[in-house]
Design a protein around this nucleic acid. Structure first.
Lengths: 159, 159
DNA sequence: CAAGATTGAAGAATCAATCTTA
DNA sequence: TAAGATTGATTCTTCAATCTTG
C-alpha cells in the first residue's frame, strides 16, 4: 500500500491523458444521471421505465403490424435478450404487449403492441419528450446537436 | 387508436427536430450500452460494479485520510444517498470500506477506504482503464475528446 | 447439436418509511 | 422539527441453466 504522497491519488489518471480523464469523469456522470432522470420522470408520470417506453416506441414504429422479433427488439433497445424477455413478461401482464410465435420458425418469438400499449405510449410521450428536451436539447446549440450525434456514432461504431 | 398511415410511426418525432431525434436515438443507445459494458468487464475481472469502482476511486483520491462524507461521496458518484448506503453496506461486508461517525456532528457518516479496498482498486484499475480506452477513447480524436467534454459539461450544467 | 428464447435464483436499485442527532 | 443517513419491501437486472424448434 503506497504511503501518502503525490501519488496517493490518481491511480487511474496516469493511463489517460488529462484531457481524456476530464472528459471521462463528465461522461461517467452523464451515464449515471441521465438514465436515472429519465426513469424517474417516466415512472412517476406514467408508471414506465425508459426501457419499457423504448419497447413501446419501437413497436409502434414497426410498420402497421406493430410487431417485432424479440431478438431485433432487444438489439434496437440495446439490452440483452434475457432482460427483454423478463420485461415483455411484465408488459404482457399489464396488457401492453402480446407475444406470438413465428409460424415459419417456431423458435422465433414476436412481440406485438396492443391497443392498450399504444394508448400508454401516447399518454407517456409528451412528458417524456419534454424531459428529453429539458435534460438534453435545451442545453445544446444546433451545432452541438450535430456534434453529439457524431460523437455517439463514433462510440457506437463497433459495438 | 390511429389507423395505419403516415403517422402510425414517429409518435415522438414530431416534438423533436430530425437532427435532435437522430442525436437522441444515438445518445439513448450509448447510455444503455456503456454502463452495461463497464459493469460486465469490471464484474468479470474484478467482482466490482462500475459504481463500486467509483466509490473506491473517489475515496482513494480523497486526501491522505482516504475518507469522505456519505453525502459528498453520493454527489460525486452521481447516485442517491440510499443507493450509496446500500452499496457501502455491501462493500463494508467485503472489507473494502469502513464507516465512522463525524465526532463534530453525530448525524454525519464518513466512509473510509481500507487497505484491502485500496488493494482491490489497484488490482481493478488497469483492466478498467483499458476498457474505458477501448470503449471510448480509441474511437475519438483529440478534438473529439474536447468536444465530448464540452458537451457533457453542457448537459451537466444545472443538474 | 445449434439457434432463439425463456426461466429461476441471486444480487442490486428505488421509494417510502424510519431512525438518530442537532 | 429538520438534516443526515439507513433500512425494508418491491421491482428490476444479470447470469447460468433450461427448454424448444430447426
Amino acid at each position: 500500500v503506497p504511503s501518502p504522497g503525490p501519488q496517493y491519488a490518481r491511480i487511474v489518471d496516469r493511463w489517460l491523458s488529462d484531457d481524456q480523464q476530464a472528459a471521462w469523469r463528465r461522461l461517467a456522470a452523464v451515464i449515471m444521471r441521465l438514465p436515472a432522470a429519465l426513469d424517474t420522470q417516466l415512472h412517476s408520470e406514467s408508471g414506465l421505465s425508459h426501457f419499457e417506453y423504448l419497447v413501446l416506441a419501437l413497436l409502434s414504429e414497426a410498420g402497421p403490424e406493430r410487431a417485432l422479433r424479440s431478438s431485433v427488439l432487444a438489439e434496437r433497445c440495446n439490452v440483452s435478450l434475457s432482460r427483454l424477455s423478463h420485461g415483455l413478461t411484465r408488459m404482457e401482464q399489464r396488457g401492453w404487449v402480446t407475444r406470438r410465435h413465428d409460424p415459419d420458425d417456431g423458435r422465433v418469438s414476436v412481440a406485438v403492441l396492443t391497443d392498450a400499449g399504444h394508448a400508454k405510449l401516447t399518454e407517456a410521450a409528451p412528458g417524456h419528450v419534454e424531459t428529453v428536451r429539458a435534460l438534453v436539447f435545451d442545453h445544446l446549440s444546433d451545432r452541438q446537436v450535430q456534434s453529439l450525434r457524431a460523437l455517439c456514432d463514433a462510440l457506437l461504431d463497433d459495438a
